[in-house]
Design a protein around this nucleic acid. Structure first.
Lengths: 215, 215
DNA sequence: TCATTTCCTGACCGTATGGTCAAGGTGAAG
DNA sequence: CTTCACCTTGACCATACGGTCAGGAAATGA
């Protein structure tokens, strides 16, 4: 566990704001702790400390550790679903997949903790979000596969397997969040600079779009 | 935690074999439990049960939980390093990178647990294998980057960024192990068949090799 | 001001976990 | 057979964890 400072908290203000602000601070702290320690390694005490609240106060807002964890996982999933909109209404793979890569790379940079929590959850057999995988994710996947297949039929890209293309997109973009520590170590210990992130995005887009024969 | 049966154990035999066989059974059980529950979620009791030994016996062979965990992580790392030999002595990217993808995809299929443990370790900031990242992995990476750059200079592939190509290779191949549960769910709940694995390998190789302009 | 709801928190509890230990079992060597 | 090093294990311990609770503080509305 890194010794990062605690999550910033705004002044309480009105009654409604107290709840919203505390839940936000707790979720932000929880996302970080769950990402860095895993579900089993995370402790409510650690999350409380990082959120700047007594542990008992966490249980006032979130009944159990599982409840809190579930909320964190749902959060990143919804962010990813939003990013997927860049996929639709695109005339072809260069725009659609290009925008999707951009969006997912941006999320890997801005929400690395959430990505790790999701990865950890799936690696452990998705005990709390299995239903999401079987419903929302499956439907979303089938929808995008249809879009990709249409692009293939229209001759806008090579006839690659759409499903494995999606896996490659997920794997490659999320790798920059999930394995960010490894990437940073191989970068001499320094986090990627703005310029390096641009280079990463450009490299991924270039290789993927050429790989599917879209450029 | 899935309710899988315990790890098989052979008869002890001679004195030397007792140690070897027990350590093997413990490591095999540990790899599975660490992968499915994470370091924090894994318990020595669970590993002991799966290995078919009393918990106290685990501490006879491995002093602490960390010791056991470290051995498991080292194991998968060495397997990956071995697979990297397919990279060398290749005349060009089609053979070298193609063989590397094949090898890593095979490992994702045969050692999914180890891959997950590694991913989990890196995601948590590599607390126990940081030195490997800074020495062995960095050297290995720089070596392969040089090989890729040579291929580029020889006109055998497009001038892509070698580093990001390696990240794409790692991400994509390991995704089939680390996110195997998600892939299985999207496959209707069934594990990939022999035929589907071949399709996966072919798809990955096809997209990557075309993506770097090697085919 | 007063009543009511919401929020806060120190102290506490039962449980589970990593690890220890001492006593006993077992194979190999002479 | 005897010896001895190696292996096995039930019982035990200190700690840490998730969760509870009662009583008090603070905000809201009349």
């Amino acid at each position: 566990m890194s010794g990062d400072a605690q999550i910033s908290r705004l002044k309480p203000g009105r009654r409604t704001d107290i709840r919203r602000e505390n839940e936000r601070a707790i979720l932000e702290a929880a996302e970080k702790v769950f990402a860095e320690a895993g579900f089993g390694g995370a402790t409510m005490q650690l999350i409380a400390d990082m959120a700047g609240l007594p542990k008992a106060n966490l249980h006032y807002y979130f009944a159990t550790k599982e409840d809190l964890y579930r909320r964190v996982v749902q959060q990143i999933f919804e962010i990813w679903l939003d990013a997927a909109s860049s996929f639709d209404n695109a005339p072809g793979p260069v725009e659609g997949i290009g925008a999707y890569i951009d969006a997912k790379m941006d999320i890997s940079r801005t929400h690395p903790h959430g990505s790790k929590v999701w990865a950890s959850e799936v690696m452990h057999g998705a005990p709390v979000i299995q239903d999401y995988l079987e419903t929302t994710l499956r439907d979303w996947t089938n929808g995008r596969i249809a879009v990709i297949q249409r692009w293939i039929d229209e001759g806008k890209m090579q006839p690659v397997n759409p499903r494995h293309l999606l896996y490659m997109l997920w794997a490659t973009t999320q790798h920059y969040a999930d394995f960010g520590h490894q990437i940073q170590t191989l970068n001499g210990g320094a986090a990627l600079t703005e310029k390096q992130w641009k280079e990463a995005k450009a490299s991924v887009k270039d290789m993927v779009l050429r790989g599917i024969g879209a450029i």
